[in-house]
Amino acid sequence: MPYANAPMTSNPADDLQAPEPSKGDGMPAIAERSATGGDTSNGAYNVIEAIRRGESVDPALHPEMEDLQGVIEIDKFNLYYGPDRALYDITMSIPSGRVTALIGPSGCGKSTLLRSINRMNDLIAGVRVDGNMSLSDSPIYAPHVDVISLRKRLGMVFQKPNPFPMSIYENVVYPLRIDGENRKSVLDEACERALRSAAIWDEAKDRLKQSALGLSGGQQQRLCIARAVVADPEVLLLDEPCSALDPIATLRIEELIQEIAQRYTVLIVTHNMQQAMRVSDYTAFMYLGRLVEYGPTSGIFRRPLLNETEEYVTGRFG
């Protein structure tokens, strides 16, 4: 089962208010329902079941999302790995200057969607797409698009910290170096600014010339964030940035994301519901390549439109 091994960090219900009474049965009833193994007899799982059957399902869009102007607009976007379809008619817009989280069980296509935005999927043989995507109104998948300049406008941070085997300094200024920037004063200034915005300046300032591989995992990830923001991207794409980190490091990164969100649009993929709740303004719930529900984070976690979303965010399934 694709959703059988999603991480269960703690019971999200502890952090939440009791679910809306309008949803009916309340906690005991939900517990009872999952104990029966997701029985569909009372019609509770119909959206998920429909998706599993391969039926097309319209996403439940919260009313707040209707008129939102997005910095990234995704329109009926489909993606295929060879014969396998990974994304189904995704239509959503990523609001500017906010943090948007993509959640969903493993294999639901959230990372694929994220990597489609900076066309990282081009590197995989046999990937086909259709539908449109645009960044600040310029199309991402038009024929002559210069992928290099597209990626320069989007910063990306990966699941596993991947600092390059060079000094901390060279790691941070790498995006500038490949742009041909070699003036020391410019690089020094950009390096300090990026390290400060990634909240790692104090730890790194005395060892800028030392190898980045000597940093701890959390520091490495913050270094990667510094590297992603050094060239002032329009959007920061974070692909499960904390999944390889311990809780303390995770906390620091989360604080950092909130800080960075004041300057950049952030799109974050996460497995961790608390994380999505803590850091994001908007949350999209995806399942098996489809967008299921999209709305303000508070809405998704407290008053989801769909029962299934609630089941998922409270840890009853997935």
Binding site: L123, R151, G155, N162, F164, Y174, P175, I178, R227, A228
Partner: peptide
């Protein structure tokens, strides 16, 4: 992951090869 990191920074294939893969 090194290659991806480099591409993610907006490096071209050749830049990635010269600065990341070759070293």
């Amino acid at each position: 992951s090194m290659r991806e990191g480099s591409y993610g920074c907006g490096a071209s294939k050749w830049q990635t090869m010269r600065r990341i893969v070759l070293p």
